[in-house]
Design a protein around this nucleic acid. Structure first.
Lengths: 199, 199
DNA sequence: AGTTATGCGATTGTTCAACAATCAATCGCG
DNA sequence: CGCGATTGATTGTTGAACAATCGCATAACT
């Protein structure tokens, strides 16, 4: 429900209401709340309840800083023909197909899968898990701005270019392109976010 | 108890026993177990219970890979005279004092604080949290090998050198030294670990 | 004898009900 | 109109209960 955008950031989640809604007991629900809070998707205010996290501007900027560091390093240090490159290719093709069908939410998830595959190039469980968390948090932020076309369209072709460069063995160029790409993406999101936040 | 080494990796934690030992109810304890499991300090086997995590060799190698990537990047990109440099200096001095007193556990925690401060140079909440998790996991591994002298002694002087270089504005040299330092540290740990594991 | 079924005991998974602690909003009062 | 006390609702925590599941020891069988 959180990553599907069914829940509005900032919304308070009553234990009684949600547990009845989901058909589980309060105690079981609290266990789930604890881990989701640890994943930063919920925030827990003692004696006040849990709320759907509202990604702050600072948090978004932080996320992009981490993404640039991790994704670019992963791409730079990746050996040629790493197994994860199959995932990259599959994600790119899925994005292209979804763009053809004008399904921009699918394009968005395909793009995120592409970046997740890039991180997988580093062969690190810890980085994979960190990236999964970051992605979920970013999804929450995306849910706030509703214009998937504008958000995801420009990056399909860039992903193709990054993939081509990497497959051609030009890792440094691929990383540089990715870094620039992430910077502009960050700028777009931050702008849209700042525009919408005061409202 | 986990990071203090009171619990042996692999040990099973009975809900009833631990809840009585700590004076909390089973439900409350299960909430705690859930987040500690999410932090990788415990492992949860369905219908079998939770166990103190046993850091695998693969996990240790992974941790060092992540450390090299994050710490070196943080050091490289850090602006001069970053606030966190005070933490670095304080940690180094604490380590020196503890070495004088032959308190090698204190030296170990001071060294870890030093590296935590390096990560703080990146000004990233997400990286700080990731590093806290990694540190706890590493502490668990250290608890398995009991020779704090051998594990921490060689690195006090290296930390001094890294700090000096960074403060002198030679970030690249500092990062290079740190990278080499982490590589030899990893080698030492892995060797000691592999030596002790079969027993 | 060795191996496979079987039953038992113990532990986890989950729920429910209850109560204390705490917070927020309402109401009353100066 | 501002401020403080009271009330109401929600969270925090506990204890007990029961079903589901697993590991193990016993028993049966080839």
């Amino acid at each position: 429900m959180l990553i599907a955008g069914d829940l509005v950031p900032g919304e308070r989640l009553s234990e009684a209401a949600v547990s009845e809604r989901l058909g589980v007991s309060r105690n079981t629900l609290r266990e789930a709340f604890r881990v989701l809070t640890h994943e930063r998707l919920l925030v827990h205010k003692p004696h006040a309840g849990v709320f759907v996290a509202v990604p702050s501007l600072a948090s978004i900027i932080d996320i992009y800083r981490v993404r640039r560091m991790i994704e670019c390093q992963a791409l730079l240090a990746a050996p040629a023909r790493h197994p994860a490159s199959r995932r990259m290719r599959a994600a790119v093709e899925s994005a292209l197909a979804s763009r053809q069908a004008d399904d921009w939410i699918a394009v968005g998830t395909a793009n995120m899968e592409f970046h997740s595959a890039i991180v997988a190039l580093a062969d690190s469980d810890h980085l994979d898990r960190l990236y999964a968390n970051i992605s979920a948090e970013l999804r929450l932020a995306f849910g706030l701005l509703d214009d998937p076309d504008y958000l995801h369209r420009p990056y399909v072709d860039r992903n193709v270019a990054v993939l081509e460069l990497y497959l051609a063995g030009e890792a440094a160029e691929a990383a540089a392109l990715l870094d620039d790409y992430l910077l502009t993406s960050e700028r777009t999101i931050v702008a849209a976010y700042a525009r919408q936040l005061p409202a």
